[in-house]
Amino acid sequence: MTEGGRDGRSRRRFLAAAGAASATALAGCNGILNDGGGDGTGAPAAATFDDFRGSGANIGGRGEITGTRVADLPDLSGQLNIYLGGGEGGLYTDLLSLFGQVYPDFEPNVRLEPSTQLASKIREEQSAGGSFADVFWAVDAGSLAAVASEGYTRALPDDVVEVVPDQFRPDNAWTGVAGRARAVPYNTDQLSASEVPDTVREFPDTAALRDSMGWAPTYGSFQAFVTAMRLLRGDEATRQWVTDMQDAGAAGYANEFLISNAVADGELAAGFANHYYALRVKAQRPDAPIDLAFTSGDAGALINVSGAEVLEGTERVDLAENFIAHLLTAEAQEFFATRTFAYPMVPGVPPVGGLPRVDELSPPDIDLRQLDDVGGTIDLLRETGAL
């Protein structure tokens, strides 16, 4: 594992292109799951491709979309028990509802709790003889890895997940379905892109950020970022960085959407947040003075994933695997990209809002399975007084 510095790339404004409004082309298809016109009986029309897609300026100017289509896969049919961790404020259940419009015989039975709690529940159930759930769909790699490390998952078939980059499907024990990049939202009235340091270790000593940085130590994504820093730099260096950031006046917030809004309001010059929160601010306030910078090769450039795994002992293996294949279709990936503003996991679906593609970022060399040591991170944050 390495922590890098500058790689010669330019620090340009990424969200400047978010207002592009040209239509996105759908390669090799007519963009329709069916005619969407109903059956004349008063029943609701089945979903079209556009039903999966969000709206607004963020979706435009992205080029063509390719990939496996829902129509290419076997029907989803029958009951599937899904433990769903988080779900982007209910948006993931919206995706399940869209699948239900396409497949009236599909019955997802969802238990919705935080990912870490569900991971603990699965381990308890499996150690007692088997989990009630068939699929675990979590919003972070650490929870997926915690379950897989105990041998409680079934390896996913190559033909289901081969389109996903290797680092986001370790040993096929689970697969990422949507990505989130750590980023630095900054106020463009107060800072230029060149003033945002290229590595997070420089932040405490950057005069332009003193008493004007925001972070969310109670937030799971921030804790994953600190866990990554511990893996890259060790506990002592990480503890010192957390202390130095406090000395530099880092302000605590309950979540990273609040941080991004505070940056847009000028309350902060910059902050630590997942990339999509700035896009959500822009979607609500197109003229807000906020943009994103990305660090290089360090914990601040971590790409984490929402992902899914099939649990050992399920009697619905085919349905569970088919469901995960559906999460990787062009329709579902367009849903993740345009409704949650996440990074698609398949190369045929571009990200939104002028974002660089995943392969244009400079994430650290970290095995996402190692992000399961959240307990050690919480201990460190408490010891330093950040929590």
Results as ranks from 00 to 15, higher is better:
340 T>I: 10
68 T>M: 11
74 P>R: 09
78 G>Q: 03
63 G>M: 10
230 R>G: 08
380 L>E: 06
321 E>V: 13
205 D>C: 02
92 Y>P: 04
192 S>M: 07
61 G>L: 08
190 Q>G: 02
321 E>N: 13
141 A>K: 00
317 V>Y: 13
279 L>Y: 08
236 E>Y: 04
287 D>H: 10
25 A>Y: 09
9 R>V: 01
337 A>I: 13
247 D>L: 12
78 G>K: 00
13 R>Q: 06
96 L>H: 15
239 R>L: 08
274 N>T: 07
35 D>N: 04
379 D>H: 01
33 L>P: 03
109 N>Y: 13
317 V>W: 11
384 T>E: 06
278 A>L: 04
15 L>D: 01
383 E>N: 11
210 R>D: 11
94 D>E: 15
161 V>L: 06
164 V>N: 03
221 S>R: 14
247 D>F: 12
146 A>V: 04
28 G>I: 03
336 F>K: 06
211 D>S: 00
328 L>A: 04
171 D>M: 04
59 I>L: 05
17 A>M: 00
294 F>V: 02
222 F>S: 01
253 Y>W: 12
350 P>W: 03
378 I>W: 09
235 D>S: 07
373 D>I: 01
349 V>R: 09
12 R>Y: 03
93 T>M: 14
270 A>T: 04
265 D>M: 01
378 I>E: 15
339 R>G: 10
131 S>E: 07
108 P>Y: 15
77 S>R: 08
44 P>E: 00
15 L>N: 00
229 M>D: 15
55 S>A: 12
